[in-house]
């Protein structure tokens, strides 16, 4: 189907070397399952979470849907007027150090200066950050960049089969994994890719 054969070798690599997102760094995710990746990442950290979006975006997080990943009471959302505000708040919250994860949804590309400032803030506060970016608008300063796409699954109704493709990794190798979220145990399962 869509998978190229050479990826199977990479896929055997352990997801755990790169997935609970490396702390004190800013990561990026894109693709239509990127919000799911962000939700999974939120569920894997302790403490309060901050989710920054711009107020003109029509999409809204649904806490009931989110509750399979984490307790929505831990989440704070910020709605900003522009990306400048979003970036300023992301910097402030990353630097503060009292949060578990800061998720930032961007709508235009970050330049190197902006990306670098976020990295410095994350380093100062020791907080991981995750930018949900439109495809192809990543910043060179990002620690890792993930492409997350849903996969059709043949089994049960609430399946959350996704393909996570690590497209960029500053300190490690790339890879791709088919993953599924288990809502019962709140765990991420890596599943072996379906054969053709």
């Amino acid at each position: 189907m869509r998978r190229s054969g050479d990826m199977f070798g990479v896929m055997s690599r352990n997801l755990s070397t790169s997935f609970p997102l490396r702390p004190a760094r800013v990561h990026e995710a894109y693709g239509s399952a990127a919000p799911v990746l962000a939700a999974v990442a939120c569920g894997q950290v302790e403490g309060s979470l901050f989710w920054i979006t711009e107020n003109w975006l029509p999409e809204r997080l649904n806490p009931l849907g989110l509750s399979t990943f984490l307790d929505p009471a831990r989440l704070l959302t910020a709605r900003t007027g522009s990306q400048i505000d979003s970036l300023a708040i992301a910097e402030e919250t990353l630097r503060d150090g009292s949060l578990g994860l800061v998720v930032l949804e961007t709508t235009r590309p970050l330049n190197l200066r902006e990306g670098r400032r976020l990295q410095l803030a994350a380093k100062a506060g020791g907080t991981p950050g995750l930018c949900i970016i439109p495809e192809g608008m990543g910043s060179n300063a990002a620690e890792t960049r993930w492409k997350a796409e849903p996969l059709p699954s043949l089994e049960s109704r609430d399946s959350t089969l996704m393909r996570w493709n690590l497209k960029k990794n500053k300190s490690g190798t790339l890879g791709a994994w088919d993953v599924r979220w288990d809502a019962e145990t709140r765990r991420l399962h890596v599943v072996s890719p379906a054969g053709e």
Partner: peptide
């Protein structure tokens, strides 16, 4: 959630 609900609305 009584039934599965979407993550985004």
């Amino acid at each position: 959630a009584p039934r599965p609900r979407p993550l985004r609305l």
